[in-house]
Nucleic acid binder design. Structure first.
Lengths: 151, 151
DNA sequence: TATTGTTATACTCTATAACTATA
DNA sequence: TATAGTTATAGAGTATAACAATA
C-alpha cells in the first residue's frame, strides 16, 4: 500500500558507541530535569550545590568545587546568588575560607528539588529493574572515576 | 599514626542518581575524545557529521540534523566549514536541499577519527566485558529514545 | 503553505588569567 | 610559597528569530 516512502532511512553508525549513547542519554535526563527545576528557580548546577551543602554542613567552596568538578571562578557567583536568595549562609572560617550551610528556606527548597530529581529518575528508569539500575550506576561511576592520563 | 586529617570527607548524595552519573561519565569520555580530536582539527560534533555522512552518502542537512539532534541554524556553518576544508561536497538536489558526500580527503580523515574513537572506547571500557557493554548500550539507548512528554 | 537552508544574534556554560587576602 | 576566593573576560555550544528560495 501507501507509496509514502519519503522516510530517508539514515543509518547511524554512532549507535554502538558508548560515548555517543552516554551523551544522548545524559542530555535527555538533564534537559528534562532542567525544565522541571524552572518551577523552583533553580538550575541543575545550583541544585547540586544546594544538595551537597545540605548533606555536608560547613563544607567550603573549594571542597564543594572539587567534589562537583566546578572551578572556583564559577563557584563564586553561584554561591553568591544562593546566599543573596537567602538559601545559604557563608560563615567566615579562617579569613580566607568560608563554611557553607543552608538556611531553613534552603533546606525546604532542597527537599523540593530532591522530589523533582526522584521523579526525573523514575520517569526515565521505570523500565529498569533495581538490580540493573545498580549495575548501571556502577558501570557509569567506573567510567568517570578512571585514573586519568598523566600527560 | 600521622595526624594528617585535613581530608574533608565530603559525602556526595548525588552518587546514587543515574542522571548525575550519566553527566559525569559522559563528560569524562567526551572531553577525553575532544582532546584527542584536536590532532585531526575536528570537534566531536563535526566528527559525528563526518561519520554519518560517510555512512549515508547523499544525506541532506535536515536529515542529518534530525538524526544527530542538531538544529539547522547550527548545522549550516558546520557543514560550510567541512566543505571549505575540502572534506565534504554539497551537491544541489532540488534547488532547496543539498546532497552531502565525503571527498577522498574526508573519507581518509573519517577513518582516522574512527580510530581515535575506538581508542577512546577501549580506554574507558576495557574493564567492561562484551556482554556488559552491550547491556550498557541498550540501557542508555532506552533512556534517550523514551517517548517524550507531550505537554 | 510547508520545507530547506542561511544569517544574525543572544544566552548559557565553562575556561583562563590576573588579582587580593590569608595561611 | 601555596591556598581560598573574587572579578573580568573569552570561548564553546546551543537557542531563537527573521529571512530567502523553493516545493
Amino acid at each position: 500500500m501507501s507509496a509514502k516512502r519519503k522516510v530517508p532511512e539514515i543509518r547511524n553508525p554512532l549507535l554502538n558507541l558508548v560515548g555517543y549513547q552516554l551523551r544522548r542519554a545524559s542530555a535527555a535526563m538533564f534537559n528534562d530535569l532542567a525544565v522541571d527545576l524552572v518551577a523552583l528557580n533553580l538550575k541543575p548546577t545550583s541544585m547540586s550545590v544546594l544538595i551537597v551543602v545540605g548533606e555536608n554542613e560547613g563544607v567550603t567552596q573549594s571542597g564543594l568545587g572539587q567534589l562537583l568538578g566546578i572551578k572556583s571562578a564559577n563557584m563564586a557567583p553561584l554561591v553568591a546568588e544562593l546566599e543573596a536568595r537567602g538559601l545559604m549562609q557563608r560563615l567566615r572560617l579562617d579569613g580566607r575560607s568560608h563554611n557553607l550551610r543552608l538556611t531553613a528556606d534552603g533546606r525546604e527548597l532542597c527537599r523540593q528539588a530532591l522530589d523533582r530529581i526522584a521523579a526525573n529518575e523514575v520517569r526515565f528508569l521505570s523500565a529498569l529493574q533495581t538490580t540493573n539500575r545498580a549495575a548501571l550506576i556502577a558501570a557509569l561511576e567506573a567510567i568517570w572515576t578512571l585514573p586519568r592520563k598523566v600527560s
